[in-house]
């Protein structure tokens, strides 16, 4: 393999990690602690798989994954913003819901797939992986990342998302409808997470129960390691994608145990967080002040 193809083979993993962590970071900027990511990511993979098979088009699969993720993201947002429930509990519940549904949807689709294969039809459930497609798997996500970054720092919506993440009470007083802004952030963030999960399916190119488990958390780590910054996330996602793509090669070369290899992303994430907290970036990359805090109007407590 030449250098170019080494790089290109990282593309699907990059797309999966980058889009997912980009969406995660943006959504969490609105102040909702997102612990449902892994469950929804796993569900997104299963839905992409199933929808592709039933429709014979990976693009339908991609769209279905995006839609599903958005629904669950908005559900989490609604519940945590409208009612005084803990973000952690709601997030983890949705995570388990995602795991469960993924099994249901995926297993049924796999049976259909097997029947179709017997009758000579091979439905395509991965996105195209020609060299050009792989270049696009770098280019489009990075393009989206730049757009999202501009949205975040330049527009009223970006300011509103950061405002509700910092201090939802003050944001309300400034004239913002917190629920509405958080729902928009959820829709945008989770559509990226859904697209990321479809990218993951293309990368692993197979589905069995449990496919994708923990990779949602890795994407979370990718987002944290970059301080939720859309552009810095390109770097962390790239590094993690390389690591993941060549994990087995690395393991063989350095004789690492698989357990240690699996821990690497999280160790790197913690290391990166500690590192940037000790630099002037601290202020820019600090987590939203109200991340995970319950929000409801004061008097509803009465």
């Amino acid at each position: 393999m030449d250098a170019a193809s080494y790089i290109l083979s990282v593309a699907p993993a990059f797309m999966a990690y980058y889009l997912t962590s980009l969406g995660q970071g943006f959504f969490e900027k609105s102040g909702v602690l997102n612990l449902s990511i892994d469950g929804v990511f796993v569900l997104g993979i299963a839905v992409a798989y199933a929808a592709s098979i039933y429709s014979c088009s990976p693009w339908v699969g991609l769209a279905a994954a995006v839609l599903t993720a958005v629904v669950f993201g908005m559900l989490l947002t609604y519940v945590t913003t409208k009612f005084p429930v803990s973000h952690g509990a709601a997030g983890l519940s949705i995570m388990f819901l995602g795991y469960g549904l993924a099994g249901l949807v995926g297993v049924a689709a796999r049976n259909t797939y097997n029947e179709m294969v017997v009758s000579g039809i091979y439905p395509q459930f991965t996105l195209p992986v020609t060299p050009i497609a792989k270049v696009l798997m770098f280019a489009i996500p990075v393009g989206l990342g730049i757009l999202l970054y501009l949205l975040e720092v330049r527009t009223k919506l970006g300011a509103a998302v950061r405002a509700v993440g910092e201090d939802p009470h003050a944001a309300t007083s400034l004239g913002i409808d917190v629920l509405r802004v958080r729902l928009i952030a959820a829709a945008l963030g989770y559509s990226l997470i859904g697209a990321g999960s479809a990218g993951f399916l293309t990368w692993v190119a197979t589905w069995s129960e449990g496919t994708g488990i923990n990779h949602g958390w890795i994407a979370y780590a990718v987002s944290l390691a970059a301080g939720r910054h859309p552009l810095l996330t390109v770097g962390t996602a790239g590094a993690f994608a390389i690591l993941a793509t060549y994990m087995y090669t690395l393991q063989a070369a350095y004789n690492l145990s698989p357990e240690i290899a699996k821990m690497i992303p999280f160790i790197v994430a913690i290391g990166a967080m500690v590192t940037f907290m000790s630099t002037p970036l601290r202020k820019k990359l600090a987590p939203p002040q109200s991340l995970g805090r319950r929000f409801f109007k004061e008097e509803r407590t009465v």
């Binding site: 300011a159 003050a170 400034l174 913002i176």
Partner: peptide, 15 residues
Amino acid sequence: QLIDKLTVAENLILG
């Protein structure tokens, strides 16, 4: 009731 991390313009446009 202003958001510290936002600029003045960002705070003001919200309403």
